[in-house]
Amino acid sequence: MQEIMKQAKLKAEELLTKGVVNRVIGWTEGDFSYDCSPATFTLDNLDKFVYTEFCGANLSKYLIEESKKEGKILVFLKPCDTYSFNQLIQEHRIKRENIYVVGIECRGKVDIDKLRAFGIDGVLGCKTEGDKLICDTIYGEKTVDKVDVMLEKCLSCKGKKHVVYDELIGEEVVEEPKDRFGMVAQLEAMTEDERYKFWQNELSKCIRCNACRNVCPACSCVHCVFDNPDSNIASKANTDRFEEKLYHIIRAWHVAGRCTDCGECSRVCPQGIPLHLINRKFIKDMNEFYGEYQAGEDTETKAPLNSYTFGDREPHEFDTKEGK
């Protein structure tokens, strides 16, 4: 990780000095190793650039605003982030010509909340050693297996291949894509009432902070329907249990077929709601009904909901699958 970070920094410095780009978007250091934030850099503040196991944030969405500005920007994208990038290109939300993409190696990112749930409190700093994560805390040094505290999105990684880049840093890790739909299938196998109870329990935690929407690279509308007072659904609190469902169903629906499963929604949810399970259900359904499709894999293929065939299945046929 240290090595990759050094390379990335050198690359940024090189491109900035050569004038290929006039700024860089990456991650800046925090006070503890887990609190690095996205930030833009020039040569002045490049010393604060970091790339660690806590750089889970997807930088693609920032490019919507950044690529409108003057000059070219260098962006570091992890393999999963490149899917969001492609999707945004397909939707004409970012200007490709203003962006220099450096694909950066990723071996899975760590979720600080999982670390805490593991009983590791007071984390001051972390470092990786092989498969282990060694945490320096106010209550002494603790060690965990990295795989136990990885972000949900990394546990179900789509693969470590960058689908778009101008240049690569680090080696392209070869990894078989993991099964993403295990939990969805488990839920499908439950009865309606069990599923309802599961979601009721999860969604009732929602505080409507809108973090999932605001971080989502697919939620790139200038004015969201939930911010439109005329839409009559713009309540800011889940005043009734209905509203939390309305919000999450509609939000998932609006990104259906465009969601690359980057997992940011689940990462940012302060209440730990497994929002990826809603998005993945749409992905799984569309794969099963209309053939395999991965949003963001390229910038050409039409999304399933933007296309049709004469012989598509009928709406009531979805329950003919196994389960229920």
């Binding site: 969805v184 009721q200 169903i249 629906w253 259906a256 359904d285 979805f318």
Partner: peptide
């Protein structure tokens, strides 16, 4: 098709 499948997934 996808929406109704989703509603059912949420337990409706």
């Amino acid at each position: 098709t996808t929406l109704f499948s989703m509603l059912n997934y949420l337990g409706i």
